[in-house]
């Protein structure tokens, strides 16, 4: 028994010293999930299918990057699901197939997303409403606005020049959505790990009091984090409608839960203070592969929903354990 313990101890020690230990667990989980997919459905695990998942995961990845930024500061944004929907139905209805309207409408929708984020930020920072309640309330308001705007039945469609960014391919192999994601991810990575803003954001999440006493303008930084999340959620909605082609009122919960799950699985704890863009994107891909596995198992929708919920909760709980232990 003693030898077994000492061998385990030595293995753990070796792992700690190896470069492998610096790889976040989410990447191992992602690889494991792909292997599982290859076992249950070899066809789904072909490269072309995997690339397709990047395309499908693009909208969620944008939303999750925004969520990650808020979560690093120790906050939470529950309004993202509705912002996705609002952006989605507004874009479809205002553009209505007219290619010339794409650019102004995209800019308008992004501005509205940022404005919702600003409202969240004001509630949290100036009125001191806890993020959970502030953004949950905002979720209802924005969803109501989307219902009101669409009259309960989304109209309009997206012209080919915009659809290309959602479901087209560059040089016939690279999904255009992946390029959008890559650009946004690089900007977000730069923001979090290279700028003064990112450092202050992390410090606020790690210890708000200490950050304030070190001269950090906690209010300004927190406000900006919510604005960024609102902006990213509306960008996610735009990429979604470009992928689907028509508006939808149905996907709010998927984006809300998905963005939080991807962030947490990707290594951003609920209490904040750390988090990476790469981890979050890996978390999104993990979820996409998980959905494929569940589809390949041919579960009925109800069973798939339950399995999804359970697996996400287990993954999040495992992370919470790993941190405190």
């Amino acid at each position: 028994m003693t030898t077994a313990t000492s061998i385990t101890a030595r293995l753990i020690e070796q792992y700690r010293r190896s470069p492998l230990s610096r790889v976040q667990p989410v990447f191992f989980a992602l690889v494991g999930m792909v292997i599982l997919l290859a076992i249950v459905s070899p066809r789904s695990a072909e490269p072309s299918n995997l690339i397709n998942m990047v395309r499908q995961g693009g909208p969620l990845a944008l939303v999750a990057i925004g969520q990650t930024v808020v979560m690093i500061s120790g906050g939470l944004d529950l309004s993202v699901g509705s912002v996705v929907i609002l952006a989605d139905v507004m874009a479809a209805q205002m553009i209505s197939g007219d290619e010339s309207k794409v650019i102004p409408v995209v800019l308008l929708v992004l501005a509205i997303g940022a404005l919702v984020g600003l409202a969240n930020g004001v509630l949290v920072v100036l009125l001191r409403v806890t993020p959970f309640i502030a953004t949950l309330g905002m979720n209802f308001i924005v969803y109501g606005a989307a219902l009101l705007y669409s009259g309960g039945a989304p109209r309009g469609d997206i012209p080919p020049n915009m659809r290309f960014w959602g479901n087209g391919f560059i040089a016939e192999v690279i999904p255009a959505a992946a390029v959008v994601l890559l650009i946004v991810a690089l900007i977000a990575w730069f923001l979090i790990s290279r700028t003064v803003f990112g450092r202050r954001l992390t410090a606020i999440g790690a210890n708000r009091r200490a950050a304030y006493l070190s001269g950090v303008s906690v209010r300004r930084v927190t406000l900006l984090a919510y604005v960024f999340s609102g902006l990213m959620a509306s960008a996610g909605g735009l990429l979604l409608v470009a992928f689907v082609g028509v508006g939808t009122l149905e996907v709010g919960t998927d984006f809300l839960l998905g963005s939080i799950a991807a962030s947490v699985i990707g290594g951003t704890p609920f209490e904040g203070g750390k988090g990476t863009v790469a981890g979050t994107i890996a978390g999104v891909l993990f979820l996409m592969v998980l959905y494929s596995v569940l589809t390949a198992l041919a579960l009925p929708v109800s069973g798939r929903r339950i399995a999804e919920g359970v697996i996400i909760l287990v993954a999040v709980a495992l992370y919470a354990r790993g941190r405190s232990g």
Binding site: R199, R200, A203, A206, N207, R209, A210, S214, G273
Partner: peptide, 23 residues
């Protein structure tokens, strides 16, 4: 509670009030 962000590294803590100097 007020002096340090315990989960962050020495560098990040030491740099925090001086970020303008390094940027």
């Amino acid at each position: 509670m007020e002096g340090l962000a315990l989960t962050l590294g020495v560098r990040e803590n030491v740099a925090l009030p001086n970020l303008n100097r390094f940027s």
